[in-house]
Design a protein around this nucleic acid. Structure first.
Lengths: 350, 350
DNA sequence: TTGAAAGCGCTAACAT
DNA sequence: ATGTTAGCGCTTTCAA
């Protein structure tokens, strides 16, 4: 038998949580009637319905969703999973990812869903399926695909309701939603070329699908301009500030044969600017810098960052819609959202 | 009757979720035995236990937590609530609050709890009790007390298991956990005084308890130095960048009779630096600037921010412990965590 | 229009 | 060591 104490959660001496049976007794009706009344059923007398509803409200009664969901076999909770780097115990705290989480929170709230937020080892994204398997969530939204493209495909093959923020890759079985990374890379590069810059460094780890796509855009833009991408100017910097800082300082100290840098995140852009200045080069005078994401603080840095704007506000709604669509049985493909270049001082228009 | 379809969540054609009864049938035992085996009960034959466990694992069975919780009258979910400004539809996206959320996520995960993340109108923090009332969470952690001190006291009086990140105020009924704001304000101010600055502006809205406490520390430090705080140098800037930007530009354009600024968040410090530069003043040369929080990006700004470091890593553990303690019936008071000054370039040591 | 009763998936007291 | 049974709080069929 469960605890027979009057306190369902073990806290001593608190009042027992109100249940339907309590309302029923006080209203002088059966629980069935209370249930119907509270759900606005037409089957119950309007006067009774009114009375029960009022009583429930005045007593501050809230329905027990666990019981309701069990009975109804339904659930309005979505798991949102943020990968983190378990090896370095370092958390993915990139402002951009956090913005996406906020955007998803809004979208879920608007649709009456709850959000279960958790972290998962970036090497074992497949563990995210646990939330679905255990019935705690009806599906999973994963923020970033990292290098686990295969794991994600497996998860989709196992019929896990899953949507991933990230880039669309060839032969992809799972549903992804993301910005147009190829376009973003091309926009940034074209702008730098238009400024007259010819030696453009690329900062980002192309093992990540999103970065790889941006690199494609970067290379395409160079080719279009009749230039050849120089692999020596491509630095596969990590996303974690702690790791990237050293890599960038070393890189910028070693070589000066470039006049622009395209970074695959605003944080990397910030770090690059610092490293460039440490190497005695000015931004944007000597080196123009373009970031990616347009994070909330991008406008308040010094210099304010020219950056590829990602559609954060739309992202949440798109991710949620994709997941709910999947649950309705729709066979939705990956979605690519538009991006644009936000001009500021780190690579100004002149 | 609930849907009799084989799909519990309405998605067409997927396999029915595995239950104990399925494992039981396949193992040739009763559900009780499966339940016991899976819970590692000593009452079940070691060989059987092994066999059942293996079967469950190979079939990828996960227990239905909704049902388990209903039966056990227990719940391992905590609601974490981030207030937002409903009027401006602007979200509290301050990097510091997001860091705290991350820290709480870690602490909860370590203890085997799930985190339900949601937002609530900052004017109606009392709505956060919904998560408890509906049985979805065993308690609520609220990030920031805003100006709703009274609402929070009411919630605590209603016996809602609640912990709030924020400052400790007189006659406070609810449990708060926060940094030592008075000390933080004093440390920052003392440092600026030690640099020889005498006219120190204060930026922050003292209607918020945390800011009010920091202001106390600021004023105390000035008095200790034999100086009088000048109310004309106190700017009650909002926390939202959009609003604050204008206020700061106006303020710094109007008056130049100060040589230092103490800001109640790093974001405000960043905005102040921009506004100061726009007004033709250098940082830290003309004006030294100190921020608050030591957000992840504080070290990567230009100049890197001298700031009061908040114990983010400890914050999550403290908040969670305080909540769990409350649920165990312990009568825990507010907790104040140590802070220290992190010296960087915006108000360097020399 | 209302109430009695069954059952959602699970655990535990009670039997064997 | 294992099975039978009752019941967590709710919704809904069925009967009245």
């Amino acid at each position: 038998m469960p605890k027979s104490k009057d306190s369902p959660d073990g806290s001593a001496g608190e009042q027992r949580r109100l249940q339907m049976v309590d309302i029923a007794r006080l209203a002088g009706v059966s629980v069935s009637t209370v249930s119907r009344a509270l759900n606005g059923s037409e089957l119950v007398n309007a006067e009774t319905r009114q009375r029960v509803a009022e009583l429930a409200r005045s007593l501050n009664y809230s329905i027990n969703f666990g019981a309701r969901n069990l009975r109804l076999q339904e659930n309005k909770t979505v798991a949102v999973v943020v990968p983190y780097d378990a090896k370095s115990r370092q958390h993915i705290s990139d402002p951009f990812f956090l913005s996406i989480v906020g955007s998803i929170a809004d979208a879920l709230t608007d649709r009456g869903y709850d959000m279960l937020l958790s972290r998962v080892d970036a090497e074992r994204l497949d563990l995210a399926s646990h939330w679905f398997d255990s019935g705690k969530a009806i599906g999973v939204i994963l923020i970033g695909q990292w290098r686990q493209h295969d794991q994600l495909n497996d998860m989709a093959a196992r019929k896990l309701p899953l949507v991933v923020w990230g880039g669309e890759m060839p032969q992809q079985l799972y549903c992804s939603v993301g910005g147009d990374n190829v376009l973003g890379g091309a926009l940034a590069t074209r702008h730098l070329l238009a400024l007259g810059r010819r030696r453009i460094a690329f900062v980002g780890d192309a093992r990540l699908p999103e970065v790889w796509l941006r690199q494609q855009g970067y290379q395409q833009a160079l080719q279009h301009a009749g230039l050849q991408a120089d692999p020596a100017l491509e630095l596969p910097a990590a996303f974690e500030p702690g790791v990237a800082t050293g890599e960038l300082r070393e890189f910028f100290a070693a070589r000066r044969d470039f006049d622009a840098v395209f970074c695959c995140s605003d944080v990397l852009a910030l770090l690059s600017i610092q490293a460039l200045r440490a190497a005695g080069r000015s931004v944007p005078g000597d080196v123009a810098v373009i970031g990616y994401d347009d994070m909330p603080l991008a406008a308040y840095c010094d210099p304010p960052l020219t950056t590829v704007h990602q559609p954060v506000a739309e992202a949440g709604a798109e991710l949620v819609e994709a997941l709910l669509g999947q649950l309705r049985g729709e066979r939705a493909g990956p979605r690519t959202l538009p991006v644009y270049l936000k001009l500021r001082e780190s690579a100004p228009n002149t």
